[in-house]
Amino acid sequence: MTVRAGALDTAAPRVPAVGRRRSAEARLGYLMVAPAVLLLILLIAYPFLMSLYMSLTDEYVGTPGRFIGLGNFVYLLHDDVFRQTAINSVLYTVVAVGVKTVLGIVLALLLYALPWGSRLFRGVILLPWVIPTALSTLAWWWMYTPPYSVVNWMLMRLGVISQPILWLSDPAWARIGIIVVNVWRGLPFYAITFLAGLVAIPRELFEAAETDGAGPLVQFRAIILPLLRPILSIVVMYSTVFTIADFEIVFILTRGGPMNMTHLFSTLAFQVGLVSTFIGRGAAITLFIFPVLAVASFFILRLVRAGEEYA
């Protein structure tokens, strides 16, 4: 049986006015998001695909490279400096994010419980987050560097130490030093976000708990923590991404030293890819961040879902 096109046209149901309006709105919707999608493609997808391509070549800056497959990745897995950098990055991220989470909750609870001056304190604690990182890190460099280290001067005056700490020269102290700066800078974001979550918890829940005889610790464990869990998870995930990709703090304070003990993926990629001009290998180093972040995101998102079920 053959059917004429005209017959099909007539057989098609008429699109009602409401449907046409919705279709026009859908088109307008696509149009509205198009600039954002375009920006995403230009600013994220293009550089990502370029670095993916470069990581598969032996390209040096200014000279075209040859395709070498996974050669750069295999090389890096056998490279002492890269392995040290991977350990540094994971250690830096886990410790910094962990400390920021704990201190962030403590600070949020303190701000929540403040009887007066809450707004003032909220404004003041945001300062480290608002000041440009490069500027504040330069101030930390000055505070750490001998012979002018005011941190050492203060600790010696307080009798905490008898000898100056080699903040940027001793491998262990240099690691602690960069983590301290990261925590100092990131803590306000954690505290303010957690505070917003705390404020959103209905007061009736605390009143009911108090009536039932629950103390502050039980209230924290049974009310605050479960209800904060979704916000907590999102903040931790967001912070993990930014902490593992950190650059300025290490670049200004130690440039990866002493003995490569503070190099992170981004600073090593900078040194190999731009300073030493091996841009193919530098690109491969940056791409190692992705699997680490994927694993972290997977576990954190699972935690979010668990929080939603609980809530």
Partner: peptide, 21 residues
């Protein structure tokens, strides 16, 4: 030498000398 030579940047030895140490 001062142990901080392990973490000096290019200004490290300048500071050592200019500080009078």
């Amino acid at each position: 030498m001062p142990r901080e030579v392990l973490g000096w940047d290019d200004a490290g030895n300048n500071n050592l000398m200019l500080s009078g140490r």
